[in-house]
Design a protein around this nucleic acid. Sequence first.
DNA 1: ATTATCTATAGATCTATAGATAATGC
DNA 2: ATTATCTATAGATCTATAGATAATGC
Lengths: 198, 198
Amino acid sequence: MKVSRERAAENRERVLDVASRLFREKGIDGIGVANLMKEAGLTHGGFYGSFASKAALAAEACERAGEQSVRRWRRIIDGARERGEDPYVALVKAYLCVAHRDNPGRGCMFTTLAAEAPRQEPELREALNANLHGLLELLVEVAPGADTAAREARAQITLSTMVGALMLARTMPDAAQSENLLATARASLIAEHGGEVR
Amino acid sequence: MKVSRERAAENRERVLDVASRLFREKGIDGIGVANLMKEAGLTHGGFYGSFASKAALAAEACERAGEQSVRRWRRIIDGARERGEDPYVALVKAYLCVAHRDNPGRGCMFTTLAAEAPRQEPELREALNANLHGLLELLVEVAPGADTAAREARAQITLSTMVGALMLARTMPDAAQSENLLATARASLIAEHGGEVR
DNA sequence: ATTATCTATAGATCTATAGATAATGC
DNA sequence: ATTATCTATAGATCTATAGATAATGC
């Protein structure tokens, strides 16, 4: 049951897309090649025609997830500017929301894969590091602060707070408490806007 | 080769201690019962005399890690007060340091196990939630803020920032950048002390 | 006699590969 | 003829259990 070259390329893309979601949802050790391929509508053995190994797929899936993440942040920034809104506030609101908390498979890699990254291949760790610098760069562009140094510091702190708050919000079984934590972090980061706390 | 009842209890404790370290270092799926027992100086089969299952061990190891973490924070707070230092500042400095970054096996569970907790048994998730509330309680006690509500908010934000910053610091392969991020987060949280930013 | 621990193994799962199959693309 | 995908399987590893062993503790 061979398919056209074009269809084969589509299949490879679909495997990558499924992998980037399932690795975030279940962890890299939490999903096997066979089940991953089944989810993409293909069989186990076909995998090794498109990828050298599971580790190579994981690294490529993380690269892709990181690039998508940066593009998404870019769109949020541009969209906010077009509407005359503050892009920093828009980013914080988009990150610290219930939909992001409840969809780890499509969300920020740091909250789902950073803890296991040190045990993975260098290529995967590099993908995470590239994503980290990509997001920090965008944050420096929009973060409040008098000079570049202040904005760089603000970017690091904001990303740290957002990553931590999302993870803690996912830890809380009580929905009201979880939403309260998200709201508190959101309010605090947005209050920093303009460089002073009211 | 049977051992005394007392020695058997010691052995069980050692397995728990090894597990609480190795699970944090390698993830719960990252270390098997056989290797874990070998690390504790026992054989694979002996495990099931002390624990009902690997999942039961994981939950108990997390409970223990959480309790140790809370006791450690308590000691830092009490020690700082005895020396006339600010306990909030002492906690932030102890958490956001290079030694903690480089020793995930003995450090905060949220940075190592929170991402895989949703896929584990309810008992383990409950252990993480209990730890979260235990640490927040201590932070509310020492955090800056005019009233209880302000201190509760400050506690949630500080813990979020610390957890996120430690994870991002572990992601950076460049040691100088990583230490810079830790220092920035530390300075920012400590600057909040007293309730205002200078 | 009881029981903590050991050896050995069943059964499941996982990554990767070998060889077969059948449709594409020259 | 080439090649994308499939079936089948090798070899490793993992959890859990069964039965043996030997020291403890009545």
